[in-house]
Design a protein around this nucleic acid. Structure first.
Lengths: 368, 368
DNA sequence: ACCGGCAATGCAACCGGTTGCATTAATTTC
DNA sequence: GAAATTAATGCAACCGGTTGCATTGCCGGT
């Protein structure tokens, strides 16, 4: 039978209380007594029962990592996977554990059962954050939101530098590659991330005094999808404003390469040479992949005829043909950051809410 | 303040014991009393404290899912990600939770701290299973091994049908595409999975009376890598035997596409036309990708000059150019199966060890 | 009227720890 | 040398549940 604290205490000839304190290295216990207790503990290979400790201390040492079943076949796992890795690693460093919970976007209840008293804090890592947020707040559970920032006090937010990364792409295309007609293709702009990338696309044009790509053959799709427009307050928290749509971005419903191909190909075919863009900035690598296929099928070359840049730097993007120029995201670091912020929040629940930026950087490969 | 069981009991006018039983729907409690208690519970939004329950019942409802930080950039997360999803989904269905723990291959201790009493069972999902297995056995923790089967009583093993999948590839190449000179490229054969794929490659040759591809230009690499040879007992459990290496498989150290390219290209260049294979069976999609690149660079076409088939069916494989013929693995289902077997093992710890096969199937695309 | 049996409930111990406070032992102060 | 202070330990309550067993009340049988 596994030894219990009471066993250790008895054998070491002290009370349960003293044994407990000795193991916790409390200054109340005489050094010699500590040694004795520790020795007995080691000898009998005593391991405290974490659950009992948790109920006694009201601190489980478990963090909830809540994510959707990965929506996108290769993006989903490539992004949230490393993020989870990062969270696990950082959690372990601080003797915390990660419990993964599915967030059902339909059913916004996050695993009611377990969460109540058993979790010290929660990381919500999704791309379409539902709003069980209020639920967490009501229950006073420290919460970190990844990829989103809502005007809620006392939470922390982890966001990657979408805008900066996209600006770097544009700078590269314009300054280093001399492009002046750059098209933009994206999943629904109602996603905060994509919208920020789009804003960078717009601002770059302003910065360099270029006209925004406007192709009469493109009829603007459903820019916002079925989602509400990006929230003004959220954008302000991220240092941005809501803006009108300019030019003719190609909007896909979903971060899906074959849809991108199907959308881009007919445009290329229907467009006069003078209306063709010389570069296409895809809001995600996945869309970039579809875009490249479409260009090939139209009998054109990447990057000679049309350059393509993406965003995310999926692990496979370096193996594309041609290897993709893109913005390197760092989900692993986001996971670490999320845990760090969460632990701060747990340590000091009155801490005011903070936005933690995670850097992105341009990776130039062969597609531009 | 959150209501406790004692609060509910008091308000409903019963004892803690009765309240507890009422909530557990025990037949000992009168229907009317149950109703009253449940009503009060609902009214006050009572949620039992899972940790307290866990310590009282000695059953935490938490399963450990133990995996390496995903080794391979695109394979790792694409495979273990869905597996984790499957485990989570199945666990949730049975009101269990998944705690993910990193398995440090170097340091074989699996999160000593938490595991002791707090976890009902463990799933070990790695490709190079370390042997903290003994540790789990000593502690009587039910254990499920994924992708491996060791001759240990009272555990369960989840393995996908590597052999069958690989046979299907060979059948396709030989019967439907008429290939007679088929090369094989693989990561180290000391990995059980790859070895089984190789055995299928050999057996198919025997079945169809073909000569195994033997290219004088290929010098056999380090077939076993730094790992021990596949274990005889393990193989027997999986219905196979240790066999001699036949032909000249191309062996890479690592499941890495660029290494595959670097290995295949010089062989193609150095080989007379008559020695060229007409098809290459790559033991993984990742290697298939590198192989295809090498073929292109050698100025040949896929599949016209050389057909290529892979194994794994990564989400991205359908987006290769050309889309890859491969064997569809089902990590999601493996995750589900792992949880199912684990729960059986928890319910009946004396259950004898079982191997659970997860199907694979051929997906024919354009590369063959 | 008495007893046995059963359904419903409550008491109190238990799971395995932690911690406030009282108690004792050891040391200092006057 | 007694009183006051401090260091070390133990007692017992507590965290929030579950469960074995005793108790109560009600019923039918004789």
């Amino acid at each position: 039978m596994k030894p219990r604290l009471s066993d250790i205490a008895r054998i070491a000839g002290v009370s349960k209380a003293t044994a407990s304190r000795a193991l916790a290295n409390s200054p109340l216990v005489k050094e010699e007594t500590k040694r004795r207790v520790l020795e007995v503990a080691k000898q009998y290979n005593y391991q405290p029962n974490a659950l009992a400790q948790a109920v006694a201390t009201k601190r489980s040492g478990i963090l909830g990592f809540c994510m959707h079943k990965s929506q996108h076949p290769y993006f989903g796992h490539s992004f949230f996977g490393p993020m989870l890795d990062g969270a696990i690693e950082e959690a372990r460093r601080h003797n915390y554990h990660i419990l993964v919970a599915p967030a059902d976007p339909a059913n916004t209840t996050f695993d009611e059962h377990f969460i109540q008293d058993s979790i010290d804090g929660v990381i919500l890592a999704t791309f379409t954050p539902m709003e069980p947020i209020q639920e967490f707040r009501r229950r006073n559970i420290p919460l970190v939101l990844v990829n989103d920032a809502v005007p809620t006090p006392n939470n922390a937010f982890i966001v990657q530098d979408e805008y900066g990364g996209a600006r770097a792409v544009m700078r590269h295309l314009i300054e280093e590659r001399g492009h002046r007609k750059i098209a933009f293709i994206s999943d629904r702009l109602s996603h905060l991330s994509y919208y920020l990338r789009y804003l960078a696309y717009l601002d770059a044009h302003r910065e360099y005094g270029l006209e925004i790509y406007n192709n009469p053959k493109i009829k603007l799709g459903n820019v916002w999808g079925n989602f509400p427009r990006p929230d003004r307050q959220k954008l302000e928290m991220l240092g941005q404003k809501v803006r009108e749509i300019e030019g003719t971005p190609i909007i896909i419903e979903g971060n899906d390469s074959s849809q991108a191909r199907d959308a881009v190909y007919p445009i290329l075919m229907a467009t006069d040479d003078k209306d063709l863009p010389t570069a296409i900035f895809a809001a995600t690598d996945s869309l970039a992949l579809g875009t490249i296929e479409a260009i090939w099928e139209a009998g054109l070359e990447v990057p000679q005829d049309i350059a393509v840049a993406g965003f995310d730097d999926l692990p496979m993007s370096a193996a594309f043909t041609p290897p993709l120029t893109t913005v390197h995201a760092n989900p692993f670091e986001m996971g670490q950051a999320a845990v760090q912020e969460l632990l701060k929040l747990i340590a000091n629940p009155q801490r005011e809410s903070a936005i933690r930026w995670v850097d992105t950087h341009l990776v130039v490969r062969k597609s531009t």
